[in-house]
Amino acid sequence: MRKWMQYMEVHQLKQKGFSVKKIAEKLGTSRNTVYRNLEKTPEEFNEWLLSCGTKGKKLDSYQDLILNWLKEHSDLSGAQVYDWLKEHYYQIMVG
């Protein structure tokens, strides 16, 4: 939501006559970000936002396994989970 608000602010400030440099300073962002926001239509920006949220994580497929370990061993630390994953599923740590 924050990125969408920034996108709207960039366009509003540009319509008010602010330069790219001033917009970047005012919003605390880079000029490259301002240029990228100005180049995109609202539809293109929305598609880009949606594509950002769909990237999977390396351990997503192991979520159920990890949750079961944590249910069985409530005092299990993150380091121990990592060690168990390395021992039994080494390919995820190097891939």
Rank of each mutant, 00 (worst) to 15 (best):
M1G: 10
R2F: 09
R2A: 11
R2D: 05
K3N: 07
K3D: 06
W4I: 13
M5T: 06
Q6A: 11
Q6C: 08
Y7E: 05
Y7C: 03
M8A: 13
M8W: 14
E9F: 13
E9P: 01
E9G: 01
E9I: 09
V10M: 13
V10W: 02
H11Y: 07
H11W: 14
H11P: 02
Q12F: 09
L13R: 12
K14R: 15
Q15R: 15
Q15A: 14
G17N: 10
G17C: 11
F18T: 00
S19T: 15
K22T: 06
K22W: 04
I23T: 08
I23G: 02
A24K: 05
E25Y: 14
L27G: 02
L27D: 06
G28V: 11
G28H: 08
G28F: 15
T33R: 14
T33W: 13
T33V: 10
V34S: 00
V34E: 00
R36H: 12
E39G: 01
E39W: 08
K40T: 00
K40C: 03
K40F: 14
T41S: 14
P42D: 09
P42Y: 09
E43Y: 14
E43A: 10
E43W: 10
E44Q: 15
F45L: 07
F45P: 02
N46E: 11
N46K: 14
N46G: 06
W48C: 03
L49Y: 09
L49R: 14
C52T: 08
C52K: 15
C52G: 09
C52H: 08
G53P: 00
T54N: 12
T54G: 07
K57E: 08
K58C: 00
L59I: 11
L59M: 15
L59N: 01
Q63S: 15
D64S: 15
I66Y: 04
L67A: 10
L67R: 11
N68E: 13
W69T: 00
W69N: 04
L70Q: 00
H73F: 10
S74G: 11
S74W: 03
S74L: 06
S74M: 09
D75T: 07
S77H: 01
S77E: 06
S77L: 09
S77R: 11
S77I: 04
G78R: 01
A79T: 13
A79D: 02
Y82N: 05
W84C: 03
W84N: 02
W84A: 01
L85N: 05
K86M: 05
H88L: 11
H88W: 15
Y89N: 04
Y90S: 08
Y90H: 10
Y90C: 00
Q91I: 08
Q91N: 09
M93I: 07
V94P: 00
V94T: 08
G95N: 13
